[in-house]
Amino acid sequence: MLIPVHTRVSPADLEVASRLGESFGGLNTLFSGLAFVVIIGTLIYQRADILSSREHLQSALRYQAELANAARRELEENRLQMRASLFATAEQSFVPLERTIADTPSVLRFYRITDDDLRAAKITAEEFAYLIATFTAAGIHIKAAAIWDPSTVTDDPFVPSSYHYELLSSDDVRRAWPLISRAISNSAYKRKIEATIARITEDSARR
């Protein structure tokens, strides 16, 4: 383009110009290749960055899920603890109330228990009050524990040498149980006591 129009161009000059143009074509190809390599490298880097971001996001989500699960477990434990505490507080109020039976034996009629029933069971009102308070207090402990783990209370008999087993091994207690059971609501705890009495009776019969 710098060559004036009126200048005569020789064939040799055209050949030089042609070679010069071909050299620029090679550079063009080289730069195009470099640009393609840069684009590929950028795509690879972006892909790695996306994968890394996804891993960080998944890790953050797992951490948040663990925190949520821990908070839910703690909330459930607090709820069960509060429920057990409220249950024990409410039920324990019955223990001193039942002990007042010894002071006012006439209230036994509300349990459908008469003086003749006490005489037949060979038990006094004071002894009945002691036993009903004892069974109620033990039942509170077992029922409160069942709030945490319901599987701890079954209908199976108490194991030998346990508190209830030793208590029910007494002939006097087993003789008084029909009266005591009238004051205890039907539950797994009550069925467990009756199963224990049946087991002790069977063992005694074998001897």
Rank of each mutant, 00 (worst) to 15 (best):
Ser53Met: 05
Ala84Gly: 03
Leu57Trp: 03
Tyr45Trp: 08
Phe36Met: 10
Asn78Arg: 15
Ala48Met: 12
Leu51Gln: 08
Gln81Glu: 11
Leu43Asn: 07
Ser85Asp: 03
Arg83Lys: 15
Tyr45Gly: 01
Ser53Trp: 01
Ile39Asn: 01
Ala70Asp: 12
Ser85Thr: 04
Gly41Asn: 10
Ile40Phe: 10
Ile50Trp: 05
Glu74Cys: 09
Phe36Asp: 08
Ser85Trp: 00
Gly41Pro: 01
Arg72Gly: 11
Ser53Tyr: 04
Ala60Val: 02
Ala48Ser: 10
Gln64His: 00
Thr42Asp: 03
Ala71Asp: 04
Asp49Phe: 07
Leu43Lys: 11
Arg79Pro: 00
Leu61His: 08
Arg62Gln: 15
Arg73Tyr: 10
Arg73Ser: 14
Ile44Leu: 07
Ile39Phe: 02
Ile50Asp: 02
Glu66Trp: 14
His56Ile: 06
Arg54Thr: 03
Arg73His: 12
Leu61Thr: 07
Arg47Glu: 00
His56Lys: 14
Glu74His: 12
Asn78Pro: 09
Leu75Phe: 06
Asn69His: 09
Asp49Ser: 12
Ile44Phe: 06
Ile50Glu: 01
Thr42Phe: 06
Gln46Ala: 10
Arg72Lys: 15
Arg62Thr: 13
Arg47Tyr: 01
Leu51Pro: 00
Arg73Thr: 11
Ser52Gln: 04
Arg83Ile: 10
Ser59Asn: 08
Arg54Gly: 02
Val38Asn: 11
Ala60Asp: 03
Gly41Trp: 03
Met82His: 06
Ala71Glu: 02
Ile50Cys: 05
Ala48Asn: 11
Arg62Glu: 14
Gln58Cys: 14
Arg47Ala: 01
Ala48Tyr: 06
Ala84Trp: 00
Leu80Trp: 03
Ser52Phe: 00
His56Ala: 14
Ala65Thr: 06
Ala48Ile: 05
Arg62Met: 14
Arg79Asp: 01
Leu61Asp: 07
Ala65Cys: 09
Arg72Met: 13
Ala70Gly: 14
Ile50Val: 14
Asp49Asn: 11
Leu61Arg: 13
Arg47Met: 02
Leu43His: 07
Arg54Cys: 06
Glu77Thr: 13
Leu61Lys: 11
Met82Trp: 03
Ala65Gly: 07
Glu66Val: 12
Ile50Phe: 08
Leu57Asn: 03
Tyr63Phe: 14
Ala48Lys: 10
Arg72Val: 11
Gln58Trp: 11
Asn78Leu: 15
Leu67Ala: 05
Ala84Ser: 10
Ala60Tyr: 01
Ile39Pro: 00
Arg83Ser: 13
Ile50Gly: 01
Leu43Pro: 00
Ser85Phe: 04
